[in-house]
């Protein structure tokens, strides 16, 4: 892998790849949106109303608001992850779409940047849909502040898109992705404060949690929902950027080894 590791050469040629994915998605946009959004919304509303009515306010916000802020980050993460795992894998391995594109004057750097920006776009849509529910139910503190959630969501999509591409690069089949969900995504959901505050965890797990990207995502999103400026914005933004970029660079090296050896 070391042999294949180098800085990506970024160019605007990633746009046709993004566009290809967009045009395919457009054909199935309505069912795809419903499918992507129904699940997180049902969880959020079901748990938020059902469980929330039994719980006291957390840090001065209702449990529903608390959960809604977590769901924005969680659903964005899932959308990006699913896209670069299952969909990108279909295009790379099953349909050999990437092979076809590589015969044109395109590089793997372009293709994977196209995939990453596409995953970011799709997860942006997911995050914004949850945000729309937050607006609709009036779960926010300050409307103008919640607009900052849009760039946050894009950043979260970028972060998990980049990370997921690494899995895509090393996976022999679809089944392999289950490991990533069981060993990375699900623990992260439980450790990063989606459903309950991180402060409820034992100290050791709290310090693990501080390193996880979803924690940084939620630390940005949650204050913005209730109308507060988040603490340590630079730290969280940098952490998400590093996870995403590092993922992209490593994934590029691994995929280069896989397809261009």
């Amino acid at each position: 892998m070391i042999k294949h590791l180098r800085l990506p050469r970024l160019s605007w040629r990633f746009i046709p790849v993004w566009q290809r994915n967009y045009l395919v998605w457009k054909k199935l946009a309505i069912p795809s949106i419903l499918g992507n959004l129904a699940d997180p919304m049902l969880y959020m509303l079901g748990l938020g109303f059902g469980l929330g009515s039994l719980l006291p306010d957390i840090d001065g916000m209702s449990y529903l608001s608390f959960l809604a802020a977590g769901t924005v980050a969680y659903s964005t993460m899932n959308a990006a992850t699913f896209e670069v795992l299952y969909s990108s894998f279909s295009r790379m391995h099953v349909q050999r779409t990437w092979d076809a594109i590589l015969n044109a004057p395109m590089t793997l750097d372009d293709i994977m940047l196209g995939e990453l920006t596409w995953a970011t776009s799709k997860s942006l849509l997911s995050g914004v849909a949850i945000l729309a529910v937050i607006w609709g139910l009036g779960l926010f503190g300050n409307f103008w502040m919640t607009l900052w959630i849009i760039p946050v969501v894009a950043l979260v999509g970028f972060c998990f898109g980049g990370m997921g591409l690494v899995m895509n690069a090393v996976s022999p089949s679809y089944d392999f992705f289950l490991y990533y969900f069981t060993l990375v995504i699900t623990p992260m959901v439980l450790l990063c404060g989606v459903f309950f505050p991180v402060t409820q965890l034992p100290p050791l797990l709290q310090s693990v949690s501080a390193w996880l990207p979803l924690t940084h995502a939620i630390d940005l999103a949650r204050p913005l929902v209730i109308g507060r400026v988040p603490d340590s914005v630079a730290l969280h933004v940098t952490a998400l950027l590093i996870y995403g970029s590092l993922g992209y660079v490593i994934a590029l090296a691994l995929t280069r080894k896989r397809l261009l050896k």
């Binding site: 290809r20 045009l23 395919v24 054909k27 349909q95 050999r96 779409t97 076809a100």
Partner: peptide
């Protein structure tokens, strides 16, 4: 290429259009 790698999500015409963009 040896193995067909047409884009199964596109029609015949769309395959040509998408490929031209690359």
């Amino acid at each position: 290429p040896q193995l067909d790698n047409l884009d199964p999500d596109f029609s015949v015409r769309e395959n040509l259009l998408a490929y031209g963009r690359y």
